[in-house]
Amino acid sequence: MSKVIHALYDDDEKLLDGVKALRSSDIHIVDVYSPFPVHGLDIALGIPKTRLAICAFIYAMTGFVAAATMMWYMMIVDWPMNIGGKPSFSFIENLPAFVPILFEASVFCAAHGMVITFLLRSWILPGVSNKNPDPRTTDDLHLVELDLDDKEASEAVKILKSSGAKEINEK
């Protein structure tokens, strides 16, 4: 018989203490819902560091290469123009003029690619319904969700109470 426990904290430091205590007694935490980012919570929960920054770098490189290819094709291969005598015989000669757009395209792809990846990865999209079990978790309370059997549950409740949980709901 499993039991869902919702423990609500009104202080981020108490929440951190509670999470650390639960983790040290090997109790599985389903999720924590917070109204604001709590520093150190991801470490306390053992969430691996996100690799979104690496994604951003890959997207930036994609944008860079795409812009370089585009300008090389249009300015050097397809229709080379003599504009004010500026050299346009090869990509390298024309490169200084390409720098601004190479930079802008890299930033464009990195920023949008990373944000889209984040939204998809966390499944935060228009039309998705929210999953926070208590509406107060976007106001001032942090919620720890546990899904345990009866034996573990009583131990968990003890830990939650001693760490200063404001409210514990069992279902």
Partner: peptide, 23 residues
């Protein structure tokens, strides 16, 4: 967008904000 404030979402959110700021 169905934001729920999960710890994992916040962790990613902070990373994305930081990288976006850097960009």
């Amino acid at each position: 967008f169905g934001w729920s404030g999960r710890a994992r979402d916040w962790s990613r959110f902070e990373e994305v904000s930081l990288v976006l700021a850097g960009l």
